[in-house]
Write a protein that binds this DNA or RNA. Sequence first.
DNA 1: TAAAAATACTCCATAGGTATTTTAT
DNA 2: ATAAAATACCTATGGAGTATTTTTA
Lengths: 302, 302
Amino acid sequence: MDRRHLRCLIALDEEGSITRAAERLGIAQPPLSMQIKGLEREIGVPLFARQPRGVVPTPAGRVLIARAREIEQAFQRAQDEARRIGEGRAGRLRVGFTESGIFNPVVIRVILEYRAAYPGVDLALEEHLSTEMIAKLARDELDLGFVRPPLPPEEGWTAYPVAREAMVVALPLSHRFASRTSLHLEELADETFVFFHRRVRPGLTDRIISACERAGFAPRTGQVVPKITSALRMVAVGAGITIVPASLVGFGAGGVAFVALGGSGLSAEIVLLGRENHPSAAAQNFIRQIAPARPGGSPDRS
Amino acid sequence: MDRRHLRCLIALDEEGSITRAAERLGIAQPPLSMQIKGLEREIGVPLFARQPRGVVPTPAGRVLIARAREIEQAFQRAQDEARRIGEGRAGRLRVGFTESGIFNPVVIRVILEYRAAYPGVDLALEEHLSTEMIAKLARDELDLGFVRPPLPPEEGWTAYPVAREAMVVALPLSHRFASRTSLHLEELADETFVFFHRRVRPGLTDRIISACERAGFAPRTGQVVPKITSALRMVAVGAGITIVPASLVGFGAGGVAFVALGGSGLSAEIVLLGRENHPSAAAQNFIRQIAPARPGGSPDRS
DNA sequence: TAAAAATACTCCATAGGTATTTTAT
DNA sequence: ATAAAATACCTATGGAGTATTTTTA
């Protein structure tokens, strides 16, 4: 029994006559007669009672016809679904982001625009540290990730630059620098910093500490916190100062002053990272959303 | 896309290599390679990423493989179900019975034995008057019916004799005939009879009235009732007497005496009636349950 | 370099076509 | 007598086989 039999059964049921069903199927009457006979032989029971003015299904034929309709529909839906997934118009896309990255306007735009452009795709967003994200990408538990450097050194990765933001100093409103328009890193040598726990330390923290050392001081660590947003709250309650990407400005939720950080060479980069040759068309479409002007890009293998 | 593709997809998914999958399928590697390529061409998206040590499914391939498993199972279940229905081991069998017929031990035995022998068949029993049953059989709303004569006069019916029962007289316990061992119809000429409503009058009532007329009297009708069981209750409360098939003896539920009716020529026949050439194997099996010794019977059309 | 997939070709099984016979009312 | 299905026979598409080349880690 194969798909041809499904169509024969359905046509025969709807027409009630081998001759008319064959006509609808675009074949001659004898081949259809043979198909039905072959199917009855294979299953071992008669499916249609032959009558002088056509055929009528037996009880066995009736249920087989009903199943044939279901299976034929399943074929069509399966083909359609696979096609849509292959074109990136359906399926699931798992995208990771960092706590700070999700505040970036470019990241927000890309996600919003992708959702609007591909409503059929189930976009699953997950927050992780950049290091976790890279591990998940490597284990294929994630399709793409908005990560911050350092990127994995090995081959087999593709990194698409998304944004590069300036860093700003976050200070308590009462701080003597709170009303400055900009600060140099050297001026912060005597400050107490709110940093991340060593355990979860993201690349950003490492880069800030390195920059301080290049500026001639080792930053004094006060409170340690697990999240950037907690760091800003710590700043608000006077536990110290911290340095965050500029897109965090405005998310301090009160009590925090943000002052531009000049001449430090510090910046917060965000790249969209994926495995090379990732077969997901949805991921390709997502990447294309970063730079809509990028030419070509369909997975052409000819 | 046809059923061969389903099996190719499943084997290829389980083996992870075209070469090994082809081996499992009992074909050479190139044909399988071509099948997959053909399917990818038909759907328009790649289904497997070719790698130097085998192939891995793309996201589109993965869902198509999952659907392929479902559809392949559906094929197998459909074939199996149709085969079982064609053999009378599954499906639905609608059997009608009359109120009085269902008390007959042969009818009870046939139904019990059929249920035990064919547990896969959904046996739907419906109570109807014989005349209603014949109408339902004609409209194919019923497969078989335990009916009482008169049978339909036209062609196209098959009637299998099931039982022929004697008739008994049902009397109140206080009746002067209550302790008799038998009665002749003539002795009932002065009695008041409990009969069925004219509207639903079954063949049995007509035959009783005819028999009385042959015996030289028109039975005096007292109470009219819609069911045999109500007739027996009316007898119990002294509303009159009635004549019922012998299998009702013991179902009077107190207050009723049953006395054999002799020499009246009256008897209550039950036949299993069905349309001729009814295609249901379940119905054939049910009929065979009446006389298990009947030889042959499988629907052989060779 | 080696293992696997792709290509090139050949063959044959079978779906489908044409002509005709059989069947059942 | 007629309409439909079954049979007989022929054709040709495409699935499968064998030999070989291409690909990529």
